[in-house]
């Protein structure tokens, strides 16, 4: 277990990738708790099951900011299934090795937020599909 952050973590802290929000996101996901600690928020733009854009924001420690940045890089411009498969180990590799003791929660925090953004997208999509199906059914009735 590392005692200090790897240089890769500091690089993501000073030059975080894909920071911000999206104007019309396909999905939004947030994890953590504003009242007592770290919060991560991901916005995704998805077309034909491809993650075209991802933006994130974090309130939290260095590990959370860096993990969010690394995750956004690993997931962006990939098929949704590949993006959803990005694991804690992939993040650890991208961050140059294990995080210091007590900081591993950052990995779960950002992965949760991204997965919730996907969930939000699927929920919206499922709703649209239902409406479409309903509309098609109504047409058939007529």
């Amino acid at each position: 277990m590392a005692e200090r952050y790897n240089p890769q973590v500091i690089e993501h802290l000073v030059r975080p990738r894909n920071v911000g929000e999206l104007e019309a996101p396909s999905g939004l996901g947030e994890s953590g708790d504003n009242a007592c600690g770290d919060v991560a928020r991901f916005a995704v733009a998805i077309e034909e099951n491809r993650l075209l854009e991802v933006r994130y924001k974090v309130y939290g420690c260095v590990a959370c900011i860096a993990a969010g940045s690394a995750l956004s890089e690993l997931a962006r411009d990939r098929h949704l299934l590949e993006a959803a498969r990005v694991s804690r180990d992939d993040l650890v590799d991208a961050l140059g090795g294990p995080l210091p003791e007590g900081k591993e929660h950052a990995l779960t925090l950002v992965l949760d937020a991204l997965h919730k953004a996907f969930e939000d997208h699927w929920n919206k999509k499922a709703g649209t599909m239902l409406v479409d199906d309903y509309a098609r059914g109504a047409d058939n009735d007529g």
Binding site: P16, V19, G20, E30, N34, K57, Y59, G68
Partner: peptide, 9 residues
């Protein structure tokens, strides 16, 4: 300034 850009706050 830079860290506030990242912050959800």
């Amino acid at each position: 300034t830079q860290l506030r850009e990242v912050s959800t706050f």
